[in-house]
Computed example of a mutant assay.
Amino acid sequence: MFAATRLVEPLRRGFLSVTETADILLVDDDVLIQLMVEDVVTQMGHRFHCAADGAHARSALKRQRFDLVILDRRLPDTDGLLLAQTIQAEARAPFIVLSSLSASHDQLLGLGLGALDYICKPVEPALLRARIARHIDAPREAHEDRVLTVGKAVQFNTQTRRLSVGGRTEVLSPAESRLFVHLIHTLDRPSDRLEISKAICGREWVYGDRTADVLVSRLRRRLAGSEVEIVTVHGLGYLLTAKPDA
């Protein structure tokens, strides 16, 4: 069911300008979802491709490079998240999850494995369109290599997601990266779970969702030993700050 279209090299690791046409791969065996996503993608002016299971998805990812992959979890032959490594390491394509598995631990798993977004089914076409546009139609200049410095020895490259703390370097997950950039931009001002949820996942925070707390905990471990820390301000949220004695 793959369209015979010419290959398009992704721009800026999957981010295109608003004038570019993207190749978008849906990995989902639900025919109704396939038709809905195809309508959304083609109405946006992009090229739609589909694979109904993990085997066909891997084959498609070897044949062609995609600008975005939309991935279901419950595939006939595998959990869609088992394709995450192939998508990122071999196909080097950004991906979002579209799944009926909506528990907070499922969303954390998807984001932790590198998903740009985790969208829960059922989803309205207008919302899906907005989420796709958020990740694929962003202006190129917004994603150029940029190094942000916090304190004296903490640097973060927003393009490669490399965090340098003193003498060590780590690569943040996409969700950790979005959180860290948000905290840098709101330096010394607390951000609550609602604000963080919108910055990381593009959605409203709901009671019981611990995505922000888990990601903050991970970032704290990565920043350990530096003069930069994430402080909990009770009743207000989290803020990034450099220790006064640094």
Score class of each variant (00 low, 15 high):
Arg58Thr: 06
Ala126Glu: 10
Ala60Phe: 11
Gln88Trp: 05
His49Thr: 04
Ser197Phe: 01
Glu144Gln: 12
Glu124Gly: 13
Ala153Gly: 07
Ile200Met: 09
Leu68Arg: 04
Arg193Thr: 00
Lys243Pro: 00
Ser100His: 09
Ala130Met: 10
Arg218Thr: 14
Val97Gln: 05
Ala22Asn: 11
Asp72Cys: 03
Ala199Asn: 01
Ile96Cys: 08
Arg65Glu: 10
Gly112Met: 07
Ala60Tyr: 04
Val41Ser: 09
Thr19Lys: 13
Thr160Gly: 02
Leu236Lys: 07
Arg178Glu: 02
Ala138Tyr: 05
Ile24Asp: 12
Val154Leu: 01
His182Lys: 02
Leu163Pro: 08
Tyr207Asn: 08
Ser99Arg: 03
Asp53Thr: 02
Ala3Tyr: 00
Ser191Leu: 02
Thr169Cys: 14
Asp106Thr: 07
Val154Phe: 00
Lys62Val: 14
Ile136Trp: 04
His135Ser: 02
Asp67Thr: 14
Leu75Met: 05
Trp205Leu: 00
Ala115Trp: 03
Gln107His: 02
Arg134Ser: 08
Met1His: 09
Asp28Pro: 15
Ala138Ser: 15
Ser104Thr: 10
Glu227Ala: 07
Lys152Ile: 01
Gln64Pro: 01
Thr160Tyr: 01
Ser17Arg: 13
Pro10Met: 06
Arg221Ser: 10
Arg13Gln: 15
Leu127Lys: 14
Gln85Val: 10
Gly235Tyr: 02
Arg162Pro: 06
Ala115Val: 07
Val233Pro: 00
Thr241Leu: 00
Gln159Ser: 13
Ala3Thr: 08
